[in-house]
Amino acid sequence: MKQIFEYEEKAGRLELFIRIIYSFIIGIVLTVYGFIAGICMFIQFFVILILGRRSQTLSDLIQGYLEYYVHILPYTSFMTDERPGIFPSPVTIYEEEKV
């Protein structure tokens, strides 16, 4: 398991400039995916209201958007130089409770 928001001291200057263009492309993909996920959330609201249960397909699409968003955050927030894929790839995010 890999921690996605981990401090890295080393940072590449060239990667900083590549990040600008790369983040713009990722932003376009994220915007389109977010728009589709927003429509799915709207539809999911009515599915729950009418049927009293969630649609697995809609839920999976919304979950995929949220996982993609969290997956690209470290790169777009200057936390790491490791580039994520432009298109969404399967990522699983876990929450660990510290006692």
Rank of each mutant, 00 (worst) to 15 (best):
A37P: 07
L16E: 06
T31S: 14
V32A: 08
H71E: 13
I25Y: 05
R19D: 07
G38T: 06
Q56A: 15
G38A: 05
L51F: 05
V70D: 04
G12R: 04
K98L: 14
M41H: 14
C40I: 03
G38S: 10
Y68L: 04
I43V: 15
P84W: 05
L61T: 07
Y22V: 00
R83L: 05
R19F: 03
P84H: 06
G38N: 08
E9G: 15
L73C: 01
Y22R: 00
L16R: 08
L61C: 00
F78T: 03
I50A: 06
R54M: 13
V32Y: 14
S59D: 10
S89C: 11
E8S: 13
A37H: 02
Q3E: 12
T80G: 00
K98R: 13
D60S: 12
S59W: 08
S77K: 09
Y22A: 00
Y68Q: 06
F78W: 07
E97K: 14
H71W: 13
I4T: 09
Q63G: 12
Y33D: 01
R83Q: 05
T76K: 07
Y7F: 12
F17Y: 03
V99I: 15
Q63I: 10
I50T: 13
S89N: 13
I72R: 10
R13H: 10
F78C: 01
E6L: 15
E95K: 08
E82W: 04
P84M: 10
I4Q: 11
G52F: 08
T76F: 00
I72L: 02
I48W: 13
D81F: 01
E8I: 08
P74H: 07
Y65H: 08
F5S: 08
I48Y: 09
F46N: 04
E67S: 08
R19N: 03
P88S: 06
Y7P: 12
S59M: 06
F87Y: 12
F87M: 10
S89H: 14
R54S: 15
G85Y: 06
V32S: 09
G34K: 05
A11V: 06
Q3D: 08
V47M: 12
P74G: 11
I36K: 04
G12C: 07
I28V: 07
E15N: 02
I4L: 15
S89V: 12
E9I: 11
V32H: 05
P84R: 04
I86R: 00
F35C: 13
M1R: 09
I48G: 11
K98A: 04
G12S: 15
Q44K: 10
K10M: 01
I18Y: 10
H71N: 14
I20M: 02
I4V: 15
Y75H: 05
F45S: 04
Q3W: 12
I72A: 13
K10G: 01
I48T: 13
G52A: 12
G85P: 14
C40F: 11
V70Q: 03
A37M: 07
I62Q: 03
G27S: 02
G64L: 02
V91M: 13
V91W: 13
V29Y: 02
R19E: 00
E82L: 12
I93Q: 05
G38I: 09
Y65I: 01
T57N: 15
